[in-house]
Simulated scan of single mutants.
Amino acid sequence: MISAINNRRSIRRFLQTPIAKEDIMDIIQSGTKAPSAKNRQPWKYIIVQEKAKDEMIEIFRQGIAREENKTALLPQSKKHISAAKYTVDIITKAPVVIFAVNTLSKDLFTALTPEEHIYEICNIQSVAASIQNMLLTATEKGIGTLWICDIYFAYEELSKWLNTEGQLIAAIALGYPDEFPKERPRKKIEEIIEWKN
Rank of each mutant, 00 (worst) to 15 (best):
S130P: 02
W43R: 01
I19K: 00
K21R: 12
K93F: 06
V127R: 03
I28M: 06
I46Q: 08
V96K: 09
I47L: 08
Q49A: 05
T137F: 03
I148Y: 10
I28L: 14
P181C: 05
F60K: 02
S130A: 13
S77M: 14
W147Y: 14
I11D: 09
I57C: 09
A20G: 05
S82L: 05
Q76C: 02
A128S: 15
K21M: 05
A83P: 04
M1S: 14
P42R: 02
E68Q: 14
A100D: 12
R8N: 02
Q132V: 08
S159V: 03
N133D: 11
K70P: 03
L135P: 05
G144T: 02
A72S: 12
V101D: 03
Y86F: 14
D178K: 12
N163C: 04
M134G: 05
H117W: 13
K53L: 07
F109C: 09
R8Y: 08
N39D: 15
A129Q: 08
I90Q: 11
G144S: 05
I169K: 02
N6F: 07
A34H: 02
W195P: 00
K187A: 12
K85M: 00
I47E: 08
G63M: 06
A138Y: 09
E116M: 02
S130I: 01
N133Q: 15
Q16L: 00
N6V: 00
S159H: 03
A72P: 08
L168D: 07
F99D: 12
L104P: 05
L146E: 01
T87E: 13
I124R: 10
I124Y: 15
N163K: 12
E68I: 03
L112P: 06
Y45Q: 07
A83I: 03
E140W: 04
F180D: 10
G175H: 06
K182Y: 07
R61W: 08
I192Y: 04
T164K: 14
I47V: 15
G63I: 00
A37K: 04
I169W: 04
S82Q: 11
S77C: 11
E115N: 08
M134K: 05
G144V: 01
L174E: 04
E115C: 01
C149E: 15
F153I: 10
I143P: 03
T17F: 01
P42G: 01
S36P: 07
E67V: 01
I98T: 04
S159R: 08
I11F: 03
K106E: 15
F180C: 09
Q29A: 13
Y176R: 06
R12N: 10
M56K: 04
N6P: 00
N39H: 09
R13P: 04
K182D: 12
D54Y: 11
I28Y: 06
I118P: 02
R12T: 07
L135W: 07
K78E: 09
T92D: 13
